[in-house]
């Protein structure tokens, strides 16, 4: 009874923690980008203020049932995938094969967005969603091959077993033996996070922030929370597979480091066209990850 109570407590506590951490990540991202641009930048808690403001707005345009269900579906899909990611050696739902389930669940969120945007019927939003799904087709291949090489290396498809196999200090991280796969996954992560060479879905100067174009007020607030959680989940995959998990504090330090690298690239890069981005993912990162997989298969 007590164990179940603790588990339920974790299930309630973890999303709140991740939302706050994600919002602070976004605030830190704005501050760091500002410092790279030689500006002072907003305070680190700026995104929390933004979310308070968006939820306190009285009116928001609504285009129909699916328009309000879309963001909710995206956000809840993401919260479910959060349950499969061990944060601080604490997996809320863990079984053999949870990596594969997670890779499927990550697709729910963009599809939910697509449903909501479709009801809005704004051409900019449609272009944005088309780009997001195209980009997903690009990076998913790299992501899956890299994850596959880790699964092959340990002979397990469970996050907890992979973290256990990496326990015992920095030297045991899979970053070293599976360097090629880690490199390919970090390249793919730039696209997953939507940071700058690959921010075609939300190109503010080009298609007016893409999928978010019709969302305002509380809907946009929900999407901000979605974005915050998405960053933690997506960097979390990298941390658990290659950087050895760790306690709650170290987990967030590692996760932020992964985000920080993506951020620095974001601060200085222009944007690819969607065709170029797709071509990029299916050439270099795909080749590197495939090479990594073959090496693992031969040397194992």
């Amino acid at each position: 009874m007590n164990a179940i109570g603790i588990q339920i407590g974790w299930i309630i506590f973890m999303p709140i923690l991740v939302i706050i951490m994600g919002l602070l990540y976004l605030g830190a991202a704005r501050k760091i980008t500002a410092r790279v641009h030689n500006r002072y930048g907003p305070p680190i808690y700026q995104n929390i203020i933004d979310v308070i403001k968006l939820f306190s707005k009285k009116r928001a345009t609504n285009h129909g049932v699916m328009f309000s269900l879309g963001p909710i579906m995206a956000f809840s899909g993401l919260l479910i995938s959060l349950m499969f990611i061990p944060i601080g050696n604490k997996a809320l739902l863990s079984f053999n094969g949870d990596i594969i389930v997670l890779l499927y669940l990550l697709v729910i969120a963009p599809l939910g967005m697509a449903l909501g945007v479709g009801e809005g019927a704004n051409p900019m939003g449609t272009i944005g969603i088309a780009r997001a799904l195209t980009l997903m087709l690009g990076y998913e291949v790299v992501l899956v091959i890299s994850a596959l090489s880790v699964m092959l290396y340990t002979g397990s498809a469970s996050f907890m077993k992979i973290i256990e196999a990496q326990s015992g200090g920095v030297g045991h991280w899979f970053l070293w033996p599976l360097f090629l796969s880690a490199l390919a996954m970090d390249m793919a992560l730039q696209g997953v996070l939507g940071e700058k060479p690959f921010d075609q879905p939300i190109a503010p100067h080009e298609i007016a922030s893409g999928p978010m174009v019709e969302f305002g007020g509380k809907y946009l607030g929900l999407l901000q929370l979605y974005h915050a959680v998405a960053i933690v989940v997506e960097t979390g995959i990298m941390v658990n597979l290659f950087l050895g998990g760790g306690t709650l504090f170290w987990w967030f330090v590692k996760s932020f480091t992964v985000f920080f690298i993506a951020l620095l690239i974001n601060a200085v890069m222009p944007r690819f066209r969607i065709g170029q981005a797709f071509k990029f993912f299916w050439t270099y990162p795909a080749a590197i990850s495939l090479l990594g997989l073959i090496l693992v298969a031969i040397l194992k």
Partner: peptide, 22 residues
Amino acid sequence: MTSRYDMERFGITPMATPRQAD
């Protein structure tokens, strides 16, 4: 907007659509 006067330190950012703007 840019580094000389930097209005983002007050939390003011340009937005692309009227639905998101205050």
